[in-house]
Write a protein that binds this DNA or RNA. Structure first.
Lengths: 218, 218
DNA sequence: GGATGTGAATGCATTCACAGCA
DNA sequence: TGCTGTGAATGCATTCACATCC
């Protein structure tokens, strides 16, 4: 509500913020009370300066000579990311991937709550997916509004992904996480992140080819 | 084998290369024969200059006045990414996520072939996961060598991920795709990409909070 | 001493803008 | 005319290095 002016923050910094949070929670589990930018950076392969600059975009959270108090910083970063409040999330697509995602533990511990699963396949509607009764897409808008849902997961085949995205946006969803291997179009003001398995593997393929390794196996 | 000197290519350019490939294949399906950098860029929200510069890092694939021949460019990009040959891939973790990933169609059409699935849970070993018989990790090294596996997918809980990564590396795997919500350490020369659901959702949370949208619903 | 926060310097990546070719 | 390939210019992000504070 009254952040110290995230006037214009580099996008990469925001991505790293999530990683910092993950590390901090892991340090907290090991009962670390404070941590320096050097230690936090090393645990992620980043420099200390990078860590300090990233955090400084959002405020002064550290203590000279001491470092950062783990508990404090966790709270601060959660607040920055907006995950100190819980986000209701819907998912469209009750296939294999949908099942896997719906079973994801730690969804809730991270500030997200899956509240409904949709699919238009008549053979699936009404069936259970974990604790969720699969609903038809016709109920998307009503459910989304009733539960103030602002985030949606697209876990349908590529062919239907754009259509589903449109329906989510129409239902008031403001951020989409897309797992279909296709480039989606969303209106300005709607956030979009995509995860494509093939793209990930292709990146590895390229990188592995760069360092050919031991050419001969004896 | 004899690329025109990928002397030093910006990392972001390589990431976009995968997206270009995806778009090109989609254009090919629609029977487009040629495409300009402008059109390719627009389909991904990028500028034409960006597309041209990215491709030019690897060679001269275009034709002034014409654009790029779709078929040609698909072949070129596949060659650059290394997916013109097939990569054998192993997966560790036969839980929900493992099942979903193993069922992923288009794995093979993209140049990857899942050849084996491993899990150390005794209640899973020997069972089937799709067409795969789940093997114990003790067989990882033998299988990986026999099939010249260089890529591995980590789909186990966070607590075991580092251990599994170490075993994959020991088995000769040179690139890891990690789905566990933890920061892995790998030796120099081993490529690593990570996908963390929580991180993705946190990015959306941040972005959605930036543009608060219609504050009032009438 | 040990650590942060931050201007200044550096290093990359993107965009511009245009020569040159079909 | 239409479009590529590319040096030059711009704009961002990272790193440096140091004043400052516990």
């Amino acid at each position: 509500m009254d952040q110290p002016r995230p006037d214009s923050v580099p996008d990469p910094a925001v991505r790293r913020l999530s990683l910092y949070l993950r590390q901090l929670e892991s340090f907290k589990k090991k009962d670390r009370r404070t941590i320096s930018s050097k230690q936090l950076g090393e645990s992620l392969g980043l420099t200390d300066a990078q860590v300090r600059k990233d955090l400084a975009y959002f405020g002064q959270f550290g203590h000279p000579g001491i470092g950062y108090r783990v508990d404090d910083l966790i709270g601060q970063v959660r607040h920055i990311l907006g995950t100190d409040k819980t986000w209701n999330v819907v998912m469209v697509g009750a296939g294999n991937l949908g099942r896997a995602l719906s079973a994801y533990r730690g969804f809730s511990s991270k500030g997200f709550k899956l509240v409904a699963v949709f699919d238009n396949d008549p053979s699936k509607v009404g069936k259970k997916l974990g604790p969720f009764s699969i609903q038809p897409l016709s109920e998307l808008e009503t459910t989304a509004h009733k539960q103030s849902v602002r985030l949606g997961i697209v876990a349908v085949p590529a062919d239907n992904a754009q259509e589903v995205a449109d329906q989510l946006v129409a239902a008031g969803v403001r951020g989409l996480l897309n797992f279909a291997p296709v480039s989606l179009t969303v209106p300005r003001g709607v956030a979009l992140n995509s995860v494509d398995l093939a793209v990930q593997l292709e990146q590895l393929s390229f990188q592995v080819n760069l360092s050919p390794g031991p050419e001969s196996r004896r």
